[in-house]
Design a protein around this nucleic acid. Structure first.
Lengths: 243, 243
DNA sequence: ATTTAATGGTGTAATTTTTACACCCTATAT
DNA sequence: ATATAGGGTGTAAAAATTACACCATTAAAT
């Protein structure tokens, strides 16, 4: 049984006491989900640095000393992929001693869900990523570090949250059809749903706003477009927060 | 916009590259729930060290360099309270820059649910806690650091999980009555439940095993005792894991 | 102009789940 | 014996979920 042992307070000023420290690093990793062509995808980078140079990895890097981890997540995602202003949600911290080959690195993992369409080009700002790209969540390649495990944890999380958090609407364009919404649910849950029951249920919640617009550019009967009404949702569900 | 800047690889051996590091500390904090006398309680310590000397706080301390955070959580809880072999579950990491008055400390928070009765005495092993004790979750005092926020996050988490994870049984004695189970649900959800409906529903799940025993030492009609059947639960719910 | 291909859009009945609700039973203490 | 305190049970109404199939509309192809 190890007893906590390296706390040897040292008086610096009148009231300051130095914290016990050792070389340690923490990082954030981001699992960014998108939905395109009926497929669920995640954002990967191709690493340009050792270790795992040339491997695919989740966008992630080291947290600076003077930024919160939430801020770090936003900054790092931007620097590695060019994406910003997403609502990222922390979901788990991975702290195995040997998860990084070069030393002790604890990583806080975040996920976010975004619309792929209409996003500006993916373009890493730093040299640490050679490129960033979307990859379908089925048939994922091996990823650097323990990133496959991080991805699996994230996927399980959002799969579970899909049915009690309004996360689907973050993946779809602002205006979407009920069929698009349904195919997203089908992709995440990996099963077919009944069209009539799905529509009945979704509409019964009362937070979908039917627009006067229709789909355009399709070679078949155009579907009505809907919007997610965040205000109504908050009213109905008493603004339950999630942390 | 800060660009990642302090990664200056340095060749040490043939293949080793030094990681960028800075003084940083991470810790774990534990929110341990117990249930006693119809009340939900958590485990607090009275601090014996600056900062926040003499304050009440969640049991928590600094992770060692060579232990995983999961291991650290178990060790630290033991050292501060004398409790061990709980199943702790990580639930959130708190990373605000100024959450610790003496420097940058990121903390990974864990929760666990345990039976208070039959636990051995609470007895801190280290000097960092003067004592450890149970305190009802209603009327909690101000806690050190951001521990009140950590507690609130934990409480919201378990409140939500109560209805889709078998966590209630970790709080009760191995053999319990349906009334005890119900009063636990009522304490966590903070509302009265209907006795007949509650029993009907609980029993309908099929994972409660009725024993041939009855309650003892009560001055009224003794109630039947039940056990939670973990194997049946796993069968019924396909062993859904939670991370 | 007609046909084809592709998806849009709709209702009802059966089943299951949830809710609301009140009284007698039994063990102990007096 | 009786008072006390919680133990234990059923039914009907309402709500939610499931299963299930066909006609409508549009653009493109002919």
């Amino acid at each position: 049984m190890t007893i906590i042992n390296n706390y040897q307070p040292e008086i610096i000023g009148v009231l300051e006491v130095k914290l016990p420290t050792f070389d340690s690093v923490f990082s954030v990793d981001c699992v960014i989900f998108g939905f395109e062509a009926g497929e669920l995808k995640i954002l990967l980078i191709e690493r340009n640095e050792e270790p795992f140079k040339d491997w695919f990895a989740l966008p992630g890097y080291i947290v600076e000393q003077d930024e919160s981890i939430d801020d770090a997540a936003e900054r790092i995602l931007y620097e590695l992929t060019g994406l910003r202003d997403l609502h990222m949600q922390q979901f788990h911290t991975f702290g195995e001693v040997n998860r990084h080959p070069q030393g002790r690195v604890i990583t806080v993992a975040y996920y976010a869900l975004i619309r792929i369409n209409g996003q500006k080009e993916l373009r890493p700002i730093t040299q640490y990523a050679r490129k960033a790209f979307w990859h379908p969540v089925n048939e994922l390649p091996k990823l650097a570090f323990d990133h496959s495990e991080i991805f699996n944890t994230a996927f399980n999380k959002i799969r579970r949250r899909l049915n009690y958090q309004p996360i689907a609407f973050e993946l779809l364009p602002e205006k979407f059809t009920l069929t698009q919404l349904q195919s997203l649910y089908e992709a995440v849950e990996n099963k077919k749903l009944d069209k009539r029951n799905f529509r009945k249920k979704m509409l019964s919640y009362g937070f979908l706003k039917e627009l006067d617009e229709k789909q355009k550019g399709v070679s078949y009967r155009a579907a009505k477009l809907y919007k997610f009404d965040r205000r109504k949702y908050a009213k109905i569900f008493h603004n339950e927060t999630e942390k």
